Computed example of a mutant assay.
Amino acid sequence: MMIIRPITEQDHDALWQIAQMTGVGFSSLQPDPEMVQRKLEWAVNSFRAEKPLEEAYYLFVMEDMETGTVVGVTGIESAVGLKAPWYNYKVNTQVHASRELDVYTRIKTLTLCSDYTGHSELCTLFLTPQYRKSSNGHLLSKCRFLFMATHAPRFNESIIAELRGFCDEEGESPFWEALGRHFFAVDFVEADQQVARGKSFIAELMPRNPIYTNLLPAKAQCVIGQTHPDTMPARKLLEDEGFRYTGYIDIFDGGPVLETQIRDIRAIRDSRHYRVRVHDCLDTDESVWLMANTHFCDFRCIAGQLSFEGLEFVNISQQQAEVLNIRDGDELRVVPLFNPQRHNHR
């Protein structure tokens, strides 16, 4: 059984091992000892703080209960850009027309902006390759929605997810090579290591005026708003939950920014609270449910089967109750793991 729980100081070595697997372009978790330690301390302090931090970082781990191994991480930032600027490019359209010359041209432009300042952000999602099977990826991503549903005052009404942009087999980003490299003379890998410490320095060196994309090489134009192949499953999952691309991209690699209102996320909107009844033996159907306790520091989330008893009660097994750290009569937030409208047509 896989369980989601808040990260602790004891998970440092596991977080460091995962950081060494993330690869180029995964700027939110790099194999940098100082960064890993900083992220860990930030997350632990966010869970321990008596009052919500202005910019809290809620980082969770997925643990294989059979082996005790941490096999994935997933996070939420309560707000971005409140202490350091949060920059994106907005993809706009400029029209150049002349009746005399019978010319009408639409050209995309990139405009530097900070429109997402204060928004919450989904971040730091990584599952180790050997566990990318079954429904593990869905559990790792969607557990955050049940946490946000229960602790809504800690988050903004709007939330974004900045996805990794396209890079080729050699680890080069066509977008960076065509744009960022001209103003910050290092290759993509080195820039990626710098970005792990923050992206504001890139914006400080980039032009403030709109950039006409037709002046960029064709390879760079083609990857604007495109997602890294390894991140496509995460993008499809978020889109199934209600996230949409609305024309904002990352200033570093051109990856898309998805956004939505928290209340419109399917797993939040459709989740319900039930009272728990614990059973030694349990008859269930084949449906898989996402279930989480209503705790904060001791948050737990799993995916599994259960049954319902009327409109008020849900029946779970003794093992599930122990893993979720709940007892008979406690509250449990429940929602189908998959979007029924999408899943039934696959």
Rank of each mutant, 00 (worst) to 15 (best):
L82Y: 02
A84M: 04
A84N: 07
N88D: 00
K90P: 06
K90Q: 04
N92W: 04
T93L: 06
H96I: 14
L101R: 11
D102P: 05
Y104F: 09
Y104D: 01
T105G: 12
L110R: 04
L112F: 01
C113F: 12
D115G: 08
T117L: 10
S120A: 07
C123S: 10
T124H: 00
L125G: 12
L125A: 11
P129K: 02
Q130D: 12
R132N: 01
K133D: 06
G137V: 04
S141F: 08
K142H: 09
F145S: 02
L146Y: 01
T150N: 05
H151R: 01
A152H: 03
P153E: 04
P153C: 02
R154Q: 04
N156I: 08
S158H: 14
S158A: 13
I159A: 07
E162H: 04
R164K: 04
R164S: 09
F166P: 04
E169F: 12
G171P: 00
P174C: 03
F175H: 05
F175P: 02
W176T: 11
W176V: 09
L179K: 05
L179A: 05
L179Y: 05
H182I: 11
F184L: 14
A185C: 14
V186M: 09
D187K: 10
D187P: 09
F188H: 07
F188L: 13
E190A: 14
A196E: 06
R197E: 13
K199E: 15
F201L: 09
A203H: 03
E204L: 15
M206W: 06
N214L: 15
